[in-house]
Design a protein around this nucleic acid. Sequence first.
DNA 1: GATGAATGAGGTTTCATTCAT
DNA 2: AATGAATGAAACCTCATTCAT
Lengths: 218, 218, 218, 218
Amino acid sequence: MAQTDTVTRILDTAEVLFAERGFAETSLRNITSKAKVNLAAVNYHFGSKKSLIQAVFARYLDPFTERFHAALDELEAEYQGRDIPLETLLESMARTVLEVPAERNSLKVFMRLLGLAYSQAQGHLRRYIQEHYGSVFTRFTELVRRATPELPDAERFWRLHFVLGSVIFTLSGLDALRDIAEQDYGEQVTVRDLIRRMRPVVVSAMHAPLPEPAESVA
Amino acid sequence: MAQTDTVTRILDTAEVLFAERGFAETSLRNITSKAKVNLAAVNYHFGSKKSLIQAVFARYLDPFTERFHAALDELEAEYQGRDIPLETLLESMARTVLEVPAERNSLKVFMRLLGLAYSQAQGHLRRYIQEHYGSVFTRFTELVRRATPELPDAERFWRLHFVLGSVIFTLSGLDALRDIAEQDYGEQVTVRDLIRRMRPVVVSAMHAPLPEPAESVA
Amino acid sequence: MAQTDTVTRILDTAEVLFAERGFAETSLRNITSKAKVNLAAVNYHFGSKKSLIQAVFARYLDPFTERFHAALDELEAEYQGRDIPLETLLESMARTVLEVPAERNSLKVFMRLLGLAYSQAQGHLRRYIQEHYGSVFTRFTELVRRATPELPDAERFWRLHFVLGSVIFTLSGLDALRDIAEQDYGEQVTVRDLIRRMRPVVVSAMHAPLPEPAESVA
Amino acid sequence: MAQTDTVTRILDTAEVLFAERGFAETSLRNITSKAKVNLAAVNYHFGSKKSLIQAVFARYLDPFTERFHAALDELEAEYQGRDIPLETLLESMARTVLEVPAERNSLKVFMRLLGLAYSQAQGHLRRYIQEHYGSVFTRFTELVRRATPELPDAERFWRLHFVLGSVIFTLSGLDALRDIAEQDYGEQVTVRDLIRRMRPVVVSAMHAPLPEPAESVA
DNA sequence: GATGAATGAGGTTTCATTCAT
DNA sequence: AATGAATGAAACCTCATTCAT
């Protein structure tokens, strides 16, 4: 009881502060004082700041991975060896991404964290994510490959990263952009809205015509 | 001479380190020791770390703004009031973005910096960029608006940011991605290749069908 | 059973770590984690780190004291009031020192601990040893006094400490020295060898001519 | 001026506290607060606590090494290739050891430090001393070899370490021993007295008869 | 009898900045 | 114009110990 409480309070506070300011700009003091927890508690429960950062991610990515694997299992069962259409795959991923943080009302935080994982140095984090969650991404990539046989492998690789960039960039910089959008267009945008907007863009991007071949001289 | 030298050495070193590790993770000591410059020199020449960060950006964004304004001037003169096609506008922007750092062989650094400007907290930086360089972007946005009359304003706003995200994300993480691509597909990708590949994707993205309207209940 | 086990495991681990690194450099965490024992167990069973240190010494010094008293009893019985020769006294001490740790194969540890007791601050330890084991040493010293009537008391005091220093220093640093000796002279030295080598040196040292008197001006 | 002052104050304070309590038991806060110097000054001037410890030793050992080399140069010149007698060599070393700290009235501190260097873990310190000052010791050892041709090499090696142990042990534990001696024998002992007392003991120890050969079975 | 959780004190180090020269 | 010295704040982490269970 007491433990769960402390550990959870630390994680809850940490993820919010990390999302707001980044890792380096958030000190353990910031976290523990806001969480009303002893300063040493972080090191006691997590061992180090690095491990805390990883734990914050794990709390999202563990259930995400599990559910996404399950969702892909279902799809594969449903399609019985036939190729799953790209739209369905993307749909399934989007749904899972939305599901996990929905239970804690922290979708925005999760998105910011994903953005930080990419943009902040934190080599240890990149390694941790790669090690622990690389396999789902690999599985997903392979299914995408079979859904888009017309694309050369390299082309597909790059397009997936274009799309990934779009999503992570937009969602992680969401707050600032949302402010501007609200000010300029009077719209109040939710993450759900954004995902709805992204769908056709992403699909079009993946299906765009192949580029003209490179010129002979670079 | 000696001063110019010092200032330039600081800027050259700072931009590389910032791009590699981020702002908070790069200390003035890191910079000055690598630049072989006195520790106090940063504060002496720039006043503070914040100002140094801004100066690093200004060195790219000042010439960029100037040239991009000039390029748009040319286009407007050429089209004499008629709408400039989206492809042409994007083309022009891409060319200018490539031109500026090309002279110092630092495209990657420039892109990483742009990425950091987006993703790192540094409120002061966002404000600085907005204040000093907001006008070019506004001008460009307005021209895009006239090139895509079929898009609702808000939709265009978001799509531009999707695209921006793609570009910055891909180019700023270029090194890592390039390694993977080379390993997996035996391709040696140049920045020019990437831009060539991006063109159809970006155009398709901008021209994607409108999303289905939001459901009534969020 | 469980308790005995825990206490013993703590003592076994603590003495090794203390001997290797010293008292201050060995944390209770080091000990308990290596001993696979709960962190609080040390405080629970021993009360404090200081008491643990004392307990580690007691485990060697209690049997040592007992046996040494017994050995001196025997000698006094054998010599029936006549002075016991210095060589015999030293011999007896050496034998007892070797006997106690021999049962646990920990002579080196014992010697290192004695060295630490001398050189590390730990006032409490010096006091503890003095209080609990001072009497054997006093008894031994008195016998030595009668064996070397030609030496002034102060001279004898210092010489005993010179010798003690030799022994503890050599035996506590044994591993490093043995490595050098083996490398340089191709000798594999056992503790018994060393004791054999020390005997004539110690005897000569104790019987050395008196120093010339101090000069008038320090 | 200001710098010299701060650096010197730190070194002066550090060596006293180290000598009194040992390295681990002396915190940088202890040092800087007693030296009335900013806490960060140690890291500014020395880089780390380890480097400070090394600097404290260097301040004694650098002049010691220099003078001892000079003294041996003189002796070699005087003896013109003939072997220098053991007594003379030891005499020369003792004189040099006394000379260096005499100028700062800190012989006792120097001795404690030497003792600590041996008994405290501090692997870095042992390595530092070995690297920087090993050569003088090697030179001295070689001269001792020629002064005691009757000793087998291994025997000489061990005897030198017996003697070293005597000296370091006694001198570094001096304070406690001195208290006892004063209480028991009413003597006030100076380091000079001790050295005077040690001389005949050391000489006798080195010239002790060879031990009886080892028994056939170890 | 034993333990996981928690704590307050204090450790070393790094930081951006300022100051006297 | 430029710099070496110095500083106060704050960073992360480890410590021995205590407490509730």
